[in-house]
Design a protein around this nucleic acid. Structure first.
Lengths: 182, 182
DNA sequence: GCCCATTATGCAAAAACTTGCATAACAATA
DNA sequence: TATTGTTATGCAAGTTTTTGCATAATGGGC
C-alpha cells in the first residue's frame, strides 16, 4: 500500500518515468524501498487513472519513448493526507534468520558460506551509502539543510548496515568455533 | 515463500498447532518473522496436503479442539533441501523512512510524534529481547550450546533494535533543532 | 556478425498476503 | 449482566507482489 506513497514522494521532488523510479529504488533507495518494474508501472497506471499524476509522452530519438509522470495537485493532497496519518511499524520477514534458526538441520560449512555471501552484499551496500554520505558532507550548509530529512534516512541505512556487519562478526566467530570443535 | 520453511523449522523442534505457531511468531520471533493467522492456517493446510506434516485432532475439554501438527520425514527432507540452497537477501520496505524522506511536505510536530511512537515500540521490543537474553545466560553451558543458533538470531534482534534506537536519537535531535528554528 | 546489457514499457497469470466475516466456549472485568 | 479477551479454527474476497513472457532500438565487446 505504501508503494503508492513512495512513488508520490519521488514525483513530489521531480517528474520521472517509471524506468527512472525503478532505477532510483534499485540504485539509491534500495536500503528502504524495493519494487519490481511491473509493480511500479502498474501503480503509475492506477495513480494516473485516479488523477494523482499527469502523464506526458516523450519521444526520444536514440532510445525508446518514455512517459514522463508528474504530481498533480490532487496527488500532492493525497500524499499529504497519508503523511498526516501514522505509518504502521515495519513488517520483518528475514529468511536468513530462519535458516540460522534451523541451522542444526544443515552443516556449518553451508551456514558459513551463506553468511559470507550475505556479508559481501551488506558490505557493498554500506560502502555505497558511505560514499553518498561523503557527497552530502561536501555540500554547502544551505544545501545540506535542504536535504536534511533524506540524509536522516541515509543515516538509517548506514547505522543499519553497520549493525548488521557487527552481528555477522559475532555469528562468524561462533560458526568458526563450532567448526574447530568438529 | 519462506513462510513454509519458517513453519517447518518450528515444527522440526516440536509439534504445534496453527495457533501455537502464530503465537510464537507474535510473542517470540516477531523480530524476524511475522504472519497473520489465516496465512499460517492456509500454509499448514498445504503442507498437510503435500505430506510434509502430519495432523492429529486433539479434543480439549475446556478449550476449543486443536489440530496438532508434526513434521513428517518428507517435511524434514524438504526443509533440508531448502537449507542447502541459498536464501535471497532481505527485501526492505520501510514506510517510516518514506514518511521522513517526504517530511518537507508535512510538519515537524507530526514527524516528531511519529518517531516518538515508533521509538516506544522499538524500546518495548528491545526490552523483551534483552529479557530473553538474560534467561539464555542463566542456562547451563550445555543448554546454551544447544540453543546457540537461535541465540544468534536473538542477537540480531538486539543489535538491530539498538541500532534503530541510536538512529532515532539522531533523528530526534535534528527534529528538535528544526523545531527550535521555526 | 552474434550475443549481451541498457533503455523503456507492458500483459497475463500465479502466488503471497491482507481484510472481513464467522463460529464457539470459557474466564475475567466493568 | 454485558462486554471484552483468550483459545482455536476457517472461508471468501480482495489487494499486493512476483514470475514469465513480450517487444524494440541502440551500443559495446568478442
Amino acid at each position: 500500500m505504501s508503494l503508492r506513497y513512495a512513488i508520490l514522494t519521488l514525483l513530489a521532488t521531480e517528474p520521472a518515468s517509471g524506468y527512472d523510479i525503478v532505477k532510483h529504488f534499485r540504485e539509491t533507495l534500495g536500503y528502504f524501498w524495493n519494487a519490481k518494474h511491473q509493480q511500479v508501472y502498474q501503480e503509475l497506471k492506477k495513480l494516473s487513472e485516479d488523477g494523482n499524476v499527469l502523464v506526458e509522452n516523450q519521444g526520444q530519438e536514440d532510445k525508446p519513448d518514455k512517459k514522463n509522470y508528474r504530481l498533480s495537485a490532487a496527488g500532492l493532497a493525497e500524499l499529504q493526507q497519508w503523511l498526516a496519518g501514522s505509518v504502521p511499524p515495519n513488517k520483518i520477514n528475514d529468511a536468513l534468520l530462519v535458516k540460522l534458526y534451523a541451522g542444526q538441520f544443515t552443516d556449518v560449512a553451508n551456514l558459513k558460506a551463506e553468511m559470507h555471501s550475505h556479508r559481501q552484499t551488506h558490505e557493498n551496500t554500506l560502502q555505497a551509502l558511505l560514499a553518498t554520505e561523503q557527497r552530502y558532507r561536501k555540500l554547502t550548509p544551505a544545501e545540506q539543510a535542504h536535504h536534511q530529512l533524506p540524509y536522516l534516512t541515509l543515516r538509517r541505512g548506514i547505522l543499519g548496515e553497520q549493525a548488521w556487519l557487527a552481528w555477522a562478526d559475532e555469528v562468524m566467530q561462533v560458526l568458526d568455533e563450532q567448526d574447530a570443535r568438529s
